[in-house]
Design a protein around this nucleic acid. Sequence first.
DNA 1: ATTATTTATTAGGTATACCTAATTTTTTGT
DNA 2: ACAAAAAATTAGGTATACCTAATAAATAAT
Lengths: 228, 228
Amino acid sequence: MIKTSDEKYLRAIYHISLSEKHVKASLSELAYYMDLKPPTVFERLKILGDEKLIIYNKNKGIRLTKVGQKEALNVIRKHRIWETFLHKVCKFSWSEVHELAEKLQNINSEKLMDRIFVLSGEPKFDPHGDPIPDKWGVLPLTERRPLLNSVEGCKCIVLGVNEDGPDFLNYLTDLKIGLNEKLSVEKIFPFDGSLKVRFRQGEMAVLSPKVAEQIMVSCMKANCLCRQ
Amino acid sequence: MIKTSDEKYLRAIYHISLSEKHVKASLSELAYYMDLKPPTVFERLKILGDEKLIIYNKNKGIRLTKVGQKEALNVIRKHRIWETFLHKVCKFSWSEVHELAEKLQNINSEKLMDRIFVLSGEPKFDPHGDPIPDKWGVLPLTERRPLLNSVEGCKCIVLGVNEDGPDFLNYLTDLKIGLNEKLSVEKIFPFDGSLKVRFRQGEMAVLSPKVAEQIMVSCMKANCLCRQ
DNA sequence: ATTATTTATTAGGTATACCTAATTTTTTGT
DNA sequence: ACAAAAAATTAGGTATACCTAATAAATAAT
């Protein structure tokens, strides 16, 4: 059985590999992301390598093996199911669930996850809108893209965010932009790329590119210009 | 904030202090109960002493301080709420919940415990029939006693068991003696103290003293001879 | 292409939570 | 009361998961 402390690494490596364009994570960004010092991570990567969970070749970066990826997706599954449970069943706010799920995800009981999954309504996406892999590591399909890449007139739905920090989430909560919120892009200011969006019952907000980049959406019209 | 690893010790000390007649736990029984070696426990007791969670005076045994007891009851509360949740909400069997609750109890979030408590129907007793302390460490009242101390003719209700091992629990499950089962003590064999009990729709079983000692019951009649 | 900067690696150290083996202290049995 | 047994304590060791400081290697900048 895989160790809890391995899971943290795998999840982090998976996260970095995805969030950056390049498929390889570097040791130092991994250390930074995990809030550990490079030698600590270095030491551990050798072990993860020995366990055939990653491939770490000198300075070619870190890549998950098939097994490593499967394990990573399993932790992600656990994490996201717990987040959904905490939000939907336990009524925790969007921004509170991450920290708790971080602890709950360490528990290894497939049976428990099955039950929690059912209690949460067999979700396909977590409260941040991130897809929940199934038991075999298969992710549900979506056409997520950053709100930033919109065209004027686009109508889309908020699927989630890329940024987990409470600062960012509280900012969105203040704006009252939440999961599944429908947004319509009224105007894009060419000067800096800020977007004026309409949402709810006609409320308006101007979002900076930095914010719009972190908000993941999916167009509601099949033939939306954003898709091209 | 109190450490997870402290909580294990406190719960174990509390458990021993209660299950044995004497209020003091000894180092070696604690070590045995926790499946650790005496020097390990010895080392740790000194720290728990420094933290003012226990009083450990040479060979006078181990006693919880006020603070230590409060913390112990808090872990016990968490443990028993999780057990109830797992049994009642997640439909785990009586004998499966202990191991999982052991892990879940390490999570420290009062808010989470409140929600899980409500989801479980604000229980006063866990699936083993053990009382759940409230937030202030106050236990609900019962008059629990071992089935072994019965008189012939006593009718009582099963509140729980003292033994948590799967062997024992599966044995009871086989017998179909469960929580809240009503038992009537038909006969006590003077030879070894075995009890013949009637339950359900007239089913009978003979229980060895060793088993009867682990089953905790409460008399159903206010004036039962057992109470004297 | 050579220096400067960044990244990776090595060396060596700390704290925690365990262990075994040896010794001392306390308790128990006769 | 004293030997035997049990329990507590000390001494010293291991593995894990961190750390800092120093060095080596790779990458970037002029």
